[in-house]
Structure formats: C-alpha cells, structure tokens
C-alpha cells in the first residue's frame, strides 16, 4: 500500500516569555524555549487508522496541527498525500479533513446545512456532487433532523456529528481528528466512533486521531503511536497494546455481604467500602474470569463492572519501560 502520511524528525519549539520586572520586560525580555515536538518520525499507509496518544502537553496536538498545515515546524520533513503541509497548504486542503473537538468550523447562528453548502463552494464541488454526497453523509450519520437547526441549538454530540460531516464532505483522503469525543456522553462517543470507522471503511480514508480515551483508540484504530515530552515512545498495533500494555483490569463488585477478602495472586485491593469492593487485576498472573468465579464463591454478587485502567496509567506503564 502507498504511504499516506510521512513524518521524519519533526520538531517544534515555543518561546515562552519569562516573568521579569516592568522595565526589564520592556527593554530586554527573556524567553525560555519549550520543545513541544522533538524529532518525531512515523508513517501511515493509505486507509490506516492510527491513534496518537499521550498525556497533556505531550505534543500530540502540536504534531497534528503541523501535519494539517496549521503550524510551521522548526525542522523535519512531512508529506501528506505527497504535499508538504505548510508549503502546499491550499492544494493539500482538498486532500485532508480536520476535526478539532474543541473548535467549531460551523457557523454558529446558521443551520449546519448552510455551512456544508459554503464548504462545498470552498472545495469547488459541483452542485450534483454536493447534493449526492450530503445525502449520503446525512443518511449515514442519521443527521437529517439536526442539519436544519441553527448550530447554537445543537447538543455537543449533534454538533460533533455535523463537524465530522463537514470534514468528510469533500471526500478527504486523510482525516485528522483531534480529541473528537472530548466532553461527549458515553452514547454519543459510541456513535461518533462507529461513524468515523464506517466512513473510513467505506472510503478508504486514512485516520489519525488524538485522544485521551482508550475507547477511541480501541474502537476506531488499528495502531497506536504514543508520544511524551515531544518524543515518540511507542508505535504498536492496538492488539499488542491491549495484550501487552493493558495487562491490568479494574473490577468493581457490589455484593450482599458487607465485606469479602479476595486473596489471590495478581489481585490488588484499590478500595473497600461496605457492600462494595474495587480491585486491580494483573491479567498476566490471573484471569478476570478466575477472579469473578472466586468472588462468586465468596459472596452473592449484585453487580459487576470490569474496566480498563485509565489511559494515564497505561501511558505511565509504557513510560516506565517495563513493557516496551
């Protein structure tokens, strides 16, 4: 398969002004340089869906902004569909779609369909092409009832569906999604993830997605790139990350008994409250099934919740280097 995104030794620093006295600040201001991205290299094949993850300040959004032509890098080489983003901005714009979860590309006072129409002109789409494309997308995203409402009246989940329609309108080859599910409820997150995956499957769109949510990573992507302090820390298929990095599961048990003792290898107590127990399970030592069987032997379970540990914990484990 052909390469869709090529990134080599990408670098970006920001100058931050140091606090100093009024006169010193006026005549001789001092700056510190913060390296946001420091020598990141990777590539994406056509149609690949890749999650770009890392903690706050890791440099993932800065990277995606350089790849989508928003920021100039300080060094390195990038090719997006054959274009250098900060040089061939206009030509590349036809090939990419962007969704920034915390920014809107929709006109606030107007219905989303007006923005779609405006964007279709911006992307030089013919009227027939626009009409058929918008029908396909509105049907696929089940958005018929929301596109005619002013954007200011839409819920966050509805707005995000419209944002993604807007970004897919011109059939981009590459889609950059920067925290597309931030602030959404569980149902809306699920809808957005499924729709992105479906759109990518149908059109063969390459997806690069940044998120703090493991659900985005697991439900949408095939591969994960982990970045921290501007450095690439890991680049693995999601399957490997799940079996290799996510060795821990969090189990919350609600039971009739006031307390039980789950003394098993690989099981660590997180929190014990009357009629409720929260434990961490190291799946490399003991399976979740075995822990649940033991719990059922010891008590009458009323509710069970099995969760992945928070993304930050997985990232921390990766940084520790024990799983690389």
């Amino acid at each position: 398969m052909a390469q869709s995104v090529f990134v080599e030794n990408l670098q970006k620093s920001f100058k931050v002004r140091k606090k100093s006295g009024f006169l010193k600040g006026l005549f001789s201001p001092e700056y510190t340089t913060v390296k946001a991205v420091d020598g990141v290299s990777f590539s994406l094949e056509e149609g690949e869906r890749v999650a770009f993850v890392g903690p706050n300040g890791a440099g993932k959004s800065t990277t995606i902004k350089m790849l989508s032509g928003i920021l100039h890098p300080d060094g390195g080489h990038v090719e997006i569909g054959g274009f250098v983003p900060w040089i061939d901005r206009k030509s590349m714009a036809y090939k990419i779609g962007t969704v920034f979860g915390q920014r809107s590309q929709l006109w606030y006072h107007l219905p989303a369909q007006d923005t779609f129409e405006l964007l279709s002109y911006a992307y030089d789409m013919s009227r027939d092409d626009f009409k058929s494309r918008i029908k396909t997308l509105v049907d696929a995203f089940d958005a018929g009832h929301i596109v005619s409402k002013p954007v200011r009246q839409l819920s966050l989940g509805e707005r995000m569906r419209c944002e993604i329609i807007a970004s897919l309108l011109h059939r981009p080859k590459i889609l950059f999604l920067d925290e597309p599910t931030v602030g959404l409820d569980v149902v809306s997150k699920g809808v957005i993830r499924d729709l992105v995956k479906k759109a990518s499957d149908e059109d063969g769109t390459t997806v690069l997605l940044t998120s703090h949510d493991t659900g985005d990573m697991e439900r949408v992507c095939d591969r994960v790139i982990v970045i921290d302090h501007g450095h690439l820390v890991a680049d693995k298929p999601v399957r490997e990350l799940r079996s290799g990095f996510i060795r821990e599961k969090i189990i919350t048990l609600a039971m009739k008994e006031e307390a039980i003792a789950l003394d098993m290898n690989g099981v660590r107590l997180i929190e014990a409250m009357p009629h409720q127990l929260r434990v961490s399970v190291d799946t490399s030592q003991v399976s979740v099934e075995a822990v649940l069987q033991q719990a059922m032997k010891l008590s009458s379970l009323q509710d069970i919740t099995v969760e992945d540990p928070p993304m930050e914990d997985i990232i921390k484990e990766i940084y520790a280097g024990s799983l690389l």
Binding site: G69, I70, K90, I96, R103, Q105, A122, D124
Partner: peptide, 12 residues
C-alpha cells in the same frame, strides 16, 4: 488561535 484553524482550507 482560531485563525490557525482556517489555514487548512482552500480559501485564504
């Protein structure tokens, strides 16, 4: 910083 988000459109 919103200005940045308009730069990757095919209209200046």
């Amino acid at each position: 910083g919103n200005i940045g988000y308009f730069l990757n459109r095919p209209i200046p």
